[in-house]
Amino acid sequence: MTRLLGLIRGDGGQSSRKWQHLAEPTWPPAIYAVGDIHGCIDQLIDLEAKICADATSYEGDCWIVYLGDLLDRGPDSAAVLDRLIDPPPAGIRRIFLAGNHEAMALEFFNAPRTNAHWLQFGGDTTLASYGIQQSAWAGASARALRDIVRSHIPREHLDFLRNLHLTLSVPGNVFVHAGLRPGIAPDQQAESDLLWIRGDFFDAPPTPGLRVIHGHTPGPAVVQAEGRVCVDTGAFATGILSAVRLTPDGAINIFQSSISPASGPQG
């Protein structure tokens, strides 16, 4: 059940976000990178169970890196945030990256507008997951919409979204939502590229000695290309949420949910 304690008060969610880069000098025993969840709670629960069972074969804490786009399009964004905010299982460290959908959602929560692009980009299903149906916000005044948002979105969800990371770097690998612009260090990248880039990233030759693990561009299967791995398999449309396990020796193993797809918007 969505937490209703600590609802938005006072500032309308306008506190600045604190998205930063994270760099770790050493590897854990294994890193599991989870693709775009997009509000698919059943798939997330199923996939996390598989990951946690696999992680018990390693000594020391393993990491789960969530590659952004936790929200929107799928039916249960509020439940996804509830789960991710909860403490992780023993032996697991969670690291959460920002995606373009988190950026759009926070922009809306900061200044709600009925004509916001986010509402046509899957944000309407996120609002519905908090009990805000379209009939409640369509045509509402700015003040009325702000009051609706304040009364339904838990502050702890906003705080969680404001404190995501832009990238995670470990030796030889960068984890990011969309990709990297060639020739620029991860911590010097434009935020818009980290959250939105496609063609310029895909078309560039790989950077020697660097592998980029990303989501953002859905496909029918996990993509393992030279210098990059794309883990987005369009869970909201296909019912398949994917993850890859990476180990310091460079090996990659794929994990996927086995929950039937729920009905929802396509594309």
Rank of each mutant, 00 (worst) to 15 (best):
I184C: 08
G199L: 11
L47R: 05
G239K: 09
A116Q: 03
T26K: 14
W196F: 04
Q188A: 14
R143S: 13
A243S: 12
P208H: 10
V170M: 13
I31D: 02
P205V: 10
A79I: 00
H165C: 04
L84V: 08
V223I: 15
I37P: 01
V34L: 09
G74Q: 11
A49T: 12
I95W: 11
T217D: 00
D232A: 05
A55V: 04
L7D: 04
G234M: 03
R143K: 10
G199Y: 11
R198L: 03
I254C: 00
G179F: 06
P171Y: 11
Q188T: 05
Q120C: 05
I45Q: 05
G91I: 12
L67W: 05
Q224W: 01
G139R: 01
W196V: 01
S169F: 06
L106G: 07
A262I: 00
A136W: 02
H38Q: 15
P112A: 05
G35Q: 02
A204W: 07
Y66W: 12
N173K: 14
G172A: 15
A237S: 15
R181N: 06
R162V: 06
V229I: 15
A225H: 10
D159M: 03
N110Q: 15
W196T: 05
D159K: 12
N173P: 00
W27Y: 09
G250T: 10
E59K: 13
V244L: 04
A79E: 14
A185M: 09
H177C: 02
L84Y: 03
T217H: 01
V229M: 05
F109E: 04
L180N: 03
D200S: 13
L7V: 11
S141Y: 03
T233P: 02
G91R: 05
R93P: 13
V212L: 08
F201G: 08
Q43P: 07
P186A: 14
P89D: 12
C52H: 13
T233A: 01
F202S: 08
A190E: 15
Q43W: 03
V65M: 12
G74H: 10
H101Y: 08
E102R: 10
H21E: 08
L44E: 01
H157F: 07
W196Y: 06
G122D: 04
G264W: 02
L127E: 05
I197Y: 06
F96T: 01
Q134T: 14
L70D: 03
D124M: 05
L44D: 06
R198C: 00
S151Y: 01
L166N: 04
D187E: 15
L67F: 10
P205E: 14
H165A: 08
G209F: 12
W27P: 07
S263Q: 11
A235C: 15
S16K: 12
A138Q: 14
P28A: 02
E107M: 07
P87A: 13
S77N: 11
D200C: 07
G172I: 12
